[in-house]
Design a protein around this nucleic acid. Sequence first.
DNA 1: ATAGGCTAAGTTGTCAGACAAATATTGTGA
DNA 2: TCACAATATTTGTCTGACAACTTAGCCTAT
Lengths: 251, 251
Amino acid sequence: MSKERPNNGKSLSQQLHEQLREIIAETPSGGKLLSEPQLAKQLGVSRATLREAMRTFETQGFIHRRQGVGTFVIPPGHMIEAGLEVLESIHTQAERMDLEVQVGPYYIIKKEASEQSAERLEINPGEPVIEVTWVMETQGRPVAYLVDVLPEDVLDGFDLERNFNGSVLDMLMSDRGPTLSISRTEISAVAAPSDIARAMGIQRGDVVLFFEATLFTAEGRVIDYSHSYYLPGYFKFHVVRRVGQGGELRG
Amino acid sequence: MSKERPNNGKSLSQQLHEQLREIIAETPSGGKLLSEPQLAKQLGVSRATLREAMRTFETQGFIHRRQGVGTFVIPPGHMIEAGLEVLESIHTQAERMDLEVQVGPYYIIKKEASEQSAERLEINPGEPVIEVTWVMETQGRPVAYLVDVLPEDVLDGFDLERNFNGSVLDMLMSDRGPTLSISRTEISAVAAPSDIARAMGIQRGDVVLFFEATLFTAEGRVIDYSHSYYLPGYFKFHVVRRVGQGGELRG
DNA sequence: ATAGGCTAAGTTGTCAGACAAATATTGTGA
DNA sequence: TCACAATATTTGTCTGACAACTTAGCCTAT
């Protein structure tokens, strides 16, 4: 068992969250959930706590509550289907796509933060960072080229050389790591620069998808800056865009 | 004329939501909110209700609650900033980016649905559709090429020729239109095919971002299928990805 | 027979007050 | 000075109740 974690105010709530997810998943599209008092009793929590958990699913558009009527599961297929808005490693993502992947050549080096890296990581240029570079392959063919840059101290407690399985994100999301919250990913398209082209075995100037991401902890600290190149055709990225609600917290 | 609406279980909660948003927006980055009892008293609601509202913001990653400590505003700039997950027209989006845009040449034609369009629109091939094609320019330079395909009956009540201002989406979102819910957008990168290259004044084979989107009404009907090409550099698209929660509702 | 209104039951929305759990601060003693 | 206990503050959860809303069925008047 991992480290002796206290109930960070999460464990219980987390459990409830999981249970609720299952219940929602098992309810047919458009179907009606049990009433709140019944559900609360079944799950062994108070109605107030249950309602807070339900609210998270409502915010995410999975369920819909109508006063005096009940709570309904929003028809999926037309729903989230786990696109880019869910933060998961490219490894995990590839599995869902039934794509068998291998970790190609990778390099883990310690260096001083470049000006660009430093700005993204919100540290000072020259501070020590770890840079992880690797190529993702399927059927022996390179399909993605990934670079992660992290402040050195973030990796305290990790044995990078031993535990690296191809995904920095998976490692950070393990229970030993800090609590992650969101990742801001910029999307663009570029012609492959020569060094990337060489590593991926394509022509210089060939079209690749380009992602640039910064990863934040729950406290708002930047702990990872990554840029990655993907061969079109092997990956299908998608986003679910929602009308209106929520936007514009900033002026 | 607003119909005689009863409090659809929202009006009050909605109001609270707005107030909370303001409070969060006005709190400095990383700052601490008032304690829940104080906030509840100030807003004139019970603590339970307040907590449900806060939960929505927590789910969206705007605030972070720590038991025994308090509730904190997550530094923005780190935050949402209205990325791709909000459904809005490219026109609106361009405005936010301080990009002055003009509507270049456009064509509105009626035709029979191709096999591909029909599949996307969930109709039968051969049924009448409207196809809107236009080029978006900034400083006289083409920067995007957009094609929208809609079933003919969707546009009942719209005078397309007269009202078209460059955005099909804006028109559909107007009050005369149906209630929209989500848009599923696939993201890829391609080398510009010759006809698009010609229309955009670039070389055939140049790199462009490629979006392919289907737009759903609240009832789940597909009412728009669009594919669009964007010149990298002129646009910055980004997505905010959230860790774990909510994912995998579907098998 | 039909249309319209009324009643009752079920469900979500909101409220009040209380205690538990986690954390940070302060005070105390060695 | 340092370790440790006491205390105050804050979020997490519970309980029970009532209000607002929706639906379905019954009843009445036309």
